[in-house]
């Protein structure tokens, strides 16, 4: 594979991963924490209303998890496409 098409395949794999993770990012904060908060607040768990917990705690944990997954997945992609620095 030429280096140009290798680079472009790497970039597209990266974009796909980003797209997936950013959809989750949007879902937990804007959808669960804001737009659907009243509906989710009907659900009680461990002393919290779910919507409120997502807005003040849950989405923060998910953000952290998303970045962790991204760094791990990118390490794999870097290796696969020979992008190690």
């Amino acid at each position: 594979m030429s280096s140009k098409s290798n680079n472009s395949a790497y970039w597209h794999a990266n974009l796909k991963l980003m797209g997936l993770l950013l959809s989750i990012w949007f879902l937990v904060s804007f959808v669960c924490g804001i737009l659907l908060v009243d509906q989710l607040n009907q659900i009680q768990f461990a002393g919290f209303k779910l919507g409120f917990w997502m807005a003040q705690q849950g989405s923060l944990y998910v953000f952290l998890l998303l970045i962790w997954i991204y760094t791990k997945r990118m390490q794999v992609l870097d290796k696969k496409f020979g992008m190690d620095e």
Binding site: L21, W25, S29, I34, A55, Q56, S59, F63, I67
Partner: peptide, 24 residues
């Protein structure tokens, strides 16, 4: 109360954008 969630999500969610879209 709940209204202040904007700061909690807003001042942390930006790091996802930084890590994925800008910093590297």
């Amino acid at each position: 109360g709940y209204d202040a969630s904007v700061y909690l999500m807003g001042w942390t969610g930006g790091y996802v954008l930084l890590a994925l879209l800008l910093a590297p």
